[in-house]
Design a protein around this nucleic acid. Structure first.
Lengths: 194, 194
DNA sequence: CGGGTAACTTGCCACTGTAAAGATGGCGGG
DNA sequence: CCCGCCATCTTTACAGTGGCAAGTTACCCG
């Protein structure tokens, strides 16, 4: 749509801005994201996004919330399809690598409004999908053990994902994040697995 | 030293800048770090730091390199003192939480010059301290197994550290990162440990 | 002691995020 | 039917940022 035929009212700027922000981050990285550049991409004035999100942090809050919703959905799907706890971890790594823009924003809490209700609700959805399956694990013990085991699992896949994205893993591991996740995650609870 | 009596040549601006940058990050976060504010803190002109580091990225490169050197030293000390592989992991988490400014910079490679020779050398020191102890572990198998087990261990402690720093862990775990690390890391290789 | 050079300063530019005030146009009540 | 309201978007302005270029200072070495 050329500037000439662009209507005064965009129609759905909020959603378009979130989508375009994700695309921009995917192209140039989170650090290079600029509200003004985003507005240029969208063909609106530089203050238009601010009107919808209040803040740059407000925009990133919306991106993070959307990210947590997507993550929760993917984790749920993985668990329901396989019933396997390990596959939830693999799905976590897959999400991080396939949706890096979301993942980057989600774990940079200094960049968004952590107390936003929409965000906290989405984050809790994700959390429950991470801890839930652990408690149903056959050898699950006390509440405290379940919690610690869940943190161990989450830490492992989260660390693996971030190290992968940072290019900090040994090259010999290959480049397929899902395969790496499956191999590496097997070392968790090794011995206690059947 | 008041501006009046401050000499034209600072004397050791490079080291002072790195130190002050770390302090500034500790106070206001990495995102709020500004070269100009840093210069103000140091009582020099806004372009003085640039002269030594070329770039904002150059400054952060120096910070990251220093961070990797510190990390390598702490990991080495932990291993030499205890001989325990798990204690190296605990030392990793301790470093991340006690030297958060360094840790933050180190794992934000988009912010610095990754090809800097001083940096890569320091990073390799850290890497060898992480992978080395694993290969000496009693039950160590093939080269590939050692590599994957090392990545699993590194991922777990790295993920734990970043999640802790992000405030993403369940509050019931408590607030002592070292204690948490010891409890959680025990789930790695569980069963294969003596 | 004099010149060369590293260290630092000053001034400038393009860019950013945010705030305030003005312009536009869709939409519901009269 | 149309008129005023108001959300949406634009325009303008401002303080702050990083980076560059040109000028200034003072140390060091021959």
């Amino acid at each position: 749509m050329s500037p000439a035929e662009r209507p005064y009212h965009h129609g759905d700027l909020r959603h378009a801005a979130i989508q375009e922000a994700v695309r921009a981050i995917a192209e140039d990285g989170l650090g290079a994201l600029s509200l003004r550049d985003l507005a240029r991409r969208l063909g609106v004035s530089h203050a238009a996004p601010t009107h919808h999100f209040g803040d740059k942090a407000g925009l990133l809050t919306a991106v993070a919330a959307e990210g947590y919703r997507l993550l929760a959905a993917e984790l749920r799907r993985a668990y329901e399809r396989t019933g396997d706890f390990l596959e939830v971890g693999v799905a976590y790594v897959r999400f991080a690598t396939r949706h890096q823009p979301y993942f980057d924003v989600m774990f940079r809490p200094d960049l968004y409004h952590q107390d936003d209700p929409e965000l906290t609700e989405a984050r809790e959805q994700s959390s429950s999908m991470l801890y839930g399956p652990v408690s149903k694990y056959p050898g699950a013990g006390s509440e405290r053990q379940v919690r610690e085991a869940g943190v161990a699992a989450w830490s492992l896949v989260h660390g693996l994902a971030t190290l992968y994205l940072n290019g900090a893993l040994p090259p010999k591991l290959g480049k397929d994040p899902e395969r790496i996740a499956r191999s590496v995650a097997a070392y968790l609870f090794a011995g206690s697995r059947v």
